[in-house]
Design a protein around this nucleic acid. Structure first.
Length: 568
RNA sequence: CGGGGCGUAGCGCAGUCUGGUUAGCGCACCUGGUUUGGGACCAGGGGGUCGGGGGUUCGAAUCCCUCCGCCCCGACCA
């Protein structure tokens, strides 16, 4: 492609509404432009990258035996009613009516459509398994779209759904998809981790997220520094700790006057005790489908509550903070909350099972209880509700965990029969009995990957594209297009590389050197060839975008040099 | 949805508080010339419903009402 005819328009200044590097650079370099909140145009450069990502995804999925289809973007409300998601999905579903007053939604995901497509066509266990996928637009009317392509309302997603006769076969496919996803993201040159994820209210089955490691990520993930353990903090575990060597001795279980001493920090000072032996109470308001209640979560004093775990523990839809006033109204004494005779639901962290020699709140203003032994609460709910922190021990190997930020670019899920049940999609098994399909579902954020790649690979000059998804691998810069020798040489090199199948762009614009090299750096082509003054001495310069190092190359060798460089 | 901010040329902004020539600057764009290895220079030029509607006023980008859009923090969300 010739730069002069390519509809590439770079900007010197970033649009003011961009904040993240990927957003700024993708707009400045002319990859995308904003249409409305969370909706973007893909300009020629952006389109090339998008197609490359699609292509890699398709190749690997096809190789794994999945089959591509394309479902309607506009889907009838009826299906959503059948699955029960029309109400549940809420405002994120963009609904509208056609001229005949039929209700439709713009598909935010396609479980319903895909199940509907398969039911009636697959009738026998002999036709299973089946893995169908599509790469296409999704629309979710997000409350707050942001960060450019990272969280748009309209976005490109690959979504796949597999159908199986039994759980075991579904798990086999799930493992195959995990391997396939790893191949896909590796080919794209990304630093990523497959992490264990929260399965949430759907429950029961496993789920993994694929995270591109980047500081601007919205998810926190715990990664083992030694083994391959990695998990979203919403699901991360840590190894069981051994008790501190210094155990406090309490002769009795009794109330103790602690005037105005409320926080863990204050208690630690007051009693000169390791917070390990303090019982921390975190009160939350839990919302359920049919009401709400106050729940108190207890942890050791040196731990923090992980809200997603806590929410799952009591099967709540949501947890909200409670004010001191609300607590008092419920007869709870903020600052002095303990498990004894507390008039609400309590949950203990699993680490507290059988714990003793504790200090806990006395449920009475200015009193704590010392020498508490949780053996009294044997029948209470003990589950993992604590947040994993930097430096905690890995549950698999015991080495230190580190916490990093990640951008979720893929998610695989053992779905089970949730949708096939709801939509009555069944097949006949060997015994001629009708059974619901056992399903898996697998997603990749295709357009989000464009932004994620740049969040991970950029410097203060612009994008640094991984080679596999870069728009063009070589940018031939003609330093001065009025110098006939330069232009002729560049044209010849351009023709040669095209013929050799190298993805090359020729910067033949009648600009000076400055803007051209700036654009090279901003757009982030992997290699630049500067055809300029050095030509007199029989040299051109090759620039590596990543290192910004320049190397003089003899014009007699440049063709081989470039072929070598861009060879896959 | 709660809190904050913004809306003036394709992009970035000044002007608004304190109403008053023809609404200005940088970049980009067009013409001519010079220049040509790190976002050139000189001269000339084109481009504006000042987000929309309503109001106050002799007079509104500027004051008031209202609607819309966009961004940020949070809540939410795969």
């Amino acid at each position: 492609m010739r730069f002069s005819k390519s509809f590439i328009h770079t900007l010197k200044e970033a649009p003011k509404d961009a904040s993240l590097p990927s957003h700024k650079y993708l707009v400045r370099a002319g990859f995308i432009s904003q249409v409305a909140s969370g909706i973007y145009n893909f300009l020629p450069l952006g389109k090339i990258v998008l197609e490359k990502i699609k292509k890699i995804t398709k190749e690997e999925l096809d190789a794994a035996g999945a089959v591509e289809v394309q479902l309607g973007f506009v889907t009838p409300c009826e299906l959503w009613e059948q699955s029960g998601r029309l109400a549940k999905y809420g405002k994120e579903l963009l609904r509208f009516k056609d001229r005949k007053e039929n209700c439709f939604v713009l598909g935010p995901t396609h479980e319903e459509m895909m199940v509907n497509l398969v039911r009636g066509r697959i009738n026998s266990y002999k036709q299973l398994p089946l893995n169908l996928y599509q790469i296409g637009l999704k629309f979710r009317d997000e409350a707050r779209p942001r960060f450019g392509l990272l969280r748009g309302r309209e976005f490109v997603m690959k979504d796949g759904y597999s159908f199986h006769a039994d759980e075991e076969d579904m798990k086999r496919e799930y493992a195959l998809m995990e391997e396939t996803y790893k191949k896909i993201f590796s080919r794209m040159g990304l630093d990523f981790r497959a992490v264990e994820a929260d399965v949430g209210a759907i429950g029961g089955s496993a789920s993994k997220e694929f995270m591109v490691i980047a500081d601007s990520g919205e998810d926190n993930i715990a990664i083992c520094t030694q083994c391959d353990y990695a998990a979203n903090v919403e699901a991360a575990k840590k190894a069981k700790r051994s008790e501190p060597s210094e155990v406090p001795e309490f002769s009795n279980f009794e109330p103790f006057l602690t005037p105005g001493i409320k926080t863990i920090e204050e208690l630690k000072e007051f009693f000169h005790i390791d917070p390990y032996f303090l019982l921390k109470a975190v009160a939350k308001k839990a919302l359920y489908e049919d009401g709400e209640e106050i729940v108190v979560f207890f942890l050791r004093g040196d731990q923090e509550l992980q809200e997603t775990k806590a929410m799952n523990a009591i099967e709540a839809l949501e947890l909200e903070d409670v004010s001191d006033e609300e607590l008092k109204k419920a007869g709870i004494v903020p600052g002095f909350i303990g498990p004894y005779e507390l008039g609400c639901k309590v949950v203990f962290d699993e680490e507290l099972k059988g714990a003793k020699n504790l200090i806990c709140g006395g449920n009475r203003e200015d009193y704590h209880l010392i020498g508490a032994d949780l053996a009294h609460f044997e029948d209470a709910l003990f589950v993992d509700i604590k947040e994993v922190k930097e430096g905690d021990e890995c549950p698999k190997c015991g080495a230190a965990l580190q916490i990093k930020k990640g951008i979720e670019v893929g998610h695989i899920f053992q779905l089970g029969t949730r949708y096939s049940d709801a939509l009555n999609a069944t097949f006949l098994d060997k015994d001629g009995k009708a059974r619901p399909f056992v399903m898996g579902t697998y997603g990749i954020g295709i357009s989000r990957l464009i932004a994620a790649a740049i969040e991970q690979n950029h410097d203060d000059r612009g994008c640094i594209w991984p080679k596999e998804i870069a728009p063009f691998s070589v940018d031939i810069i003609v330093s001065n297009t009025k110098e006939k020798e330069q232009l002729d040489f560049a044209e010849e090199l351009y023709g040669f590389l095209l013929q050799e199948g190298v993805e090359v762009i020729l910067d033949d614009r009648p600009e000076r050197f400055g803007p051209k090299i700036k654009d090279f750096e901003l757009i982030g082509f992997p290699y630049g060839v500067i055809v300029g003054k050095g030509l007199r001495d029989g040299k051109v310069q090759v620039v590596d975008r990543k290192t910004l190092e320049k190397e003089d190359v003899d014009i007699l060798n440049i063709k081989d040099y470039l072929l070598q460089l861009t060879k896959k």
